[in-house]
Design a binder for these strands. Structure first.
Lengths: 151, 151
DNA sequence: TATTGTTATACTCTATAACTATA
DNA sequence: TATAGTTATAGAGTATAACAATA
């Protein structure tokens, strides 16, 4: 039914920016070792791959290479990642997370998740499962990725 | 169960930014009469209230007054809203949408919704309903607002 | 020639601080 | 004194265009 697809799109357009704003605000609030949302996502990806390139980051995050370059600049400046020339193809850089980066990631993840968890505690068990399941549906639809089995 | 709340928070933190990036990219892509996401949300709010103040905008969007002021500057510069001094309290401004603003809103809404709809068309009827319902749950949880009966 | 990455430039969003005008 | 709004300033995120180095 076309109607339901449109309604769902309208809801996404209305609600997703609100949740996003909450996430940004929370991340900004705990910014002692704080990460912005793009920095956070970039770091997550670099950690997960264990050694990606700049183009890899750009493609994964849906950014242009210059944008990815600037975010990587910031992370490297704070020594959260290393950026080395690849031995095989000297045009490429290899990006890897440092122990400091892992720590910052754990902190940001923990603090922001705690704030989200507190909001979500108002939901019933049933609602919680519905939202969790919907996130999995949206992940598949918008990124083509399946859930990775970690944590 | 605490576990489910945490898992849900982790999913939100992972998936919401992806969907948000899609929305931003789409809005940017159709930017003939295009609006950024904050401009879009501001315009939606001004339309819905039919005459709000700058502080009203700031509070609704979770922005500081200077941030709201700049976004309003941009909308006014493109003649999508009017900004008049309130007769009752001359410190206040009254923000109202223009016919051009309504048009821009309809265009942005239509184009971006079309792109979202196209992605959502891959979902089953059941999944679609689950996502729609979850958006309503999240709207209530993150904004305290109930669905308004329009459109 | 094509690809990887970078630099230059510009615009939007966002904040804090300091200010004006009005109440 | 308190509130509504603005201006000044600064930093992050994003883009396009142009470039260098390597393949």
């Amino acid at each position: 039914m076309v109607h339901d697809t449109n309604e769902c799109a309208r809801e996404l357009l209305d609600v997703v920016p609100s949740v996003m704003r909450f996430i940004r605000t929370e991340m900004r609030r705990h910014r002692a070792l704080g990460l912005s949302v793009p920095q956070f996502r970039t770091l997550v990806y670099i950690e997960r791959t264990g050694g990606t390139s700049l183009v890899g980051v750009a493609e994964h995050l849906g950014l242009t290479p210059p944008s990815a370059c600037k975010i990587v600049d910031g992370l490297q400046g704070r020594q959260l990642i290393t950026r080395t020339q690849s031995p095989e193809d000297r045009r490429m850089v290899t990006l890897q997370i440092t122990s400091g980066g892992k720590q910052a990631l754990a902190d940001a993840r923990g603090e922001t998740q705690k704030s989200l968890t507190s909001v979500l505690s108002a939901l019933s068990q049933h609602e919680l499962l519905a939202v969790t399941r919907s996130m999995e549906i949206l992940r598949t639809a918008f990124t083509g990725e399946r859930v990775h089995a970690n944590s």
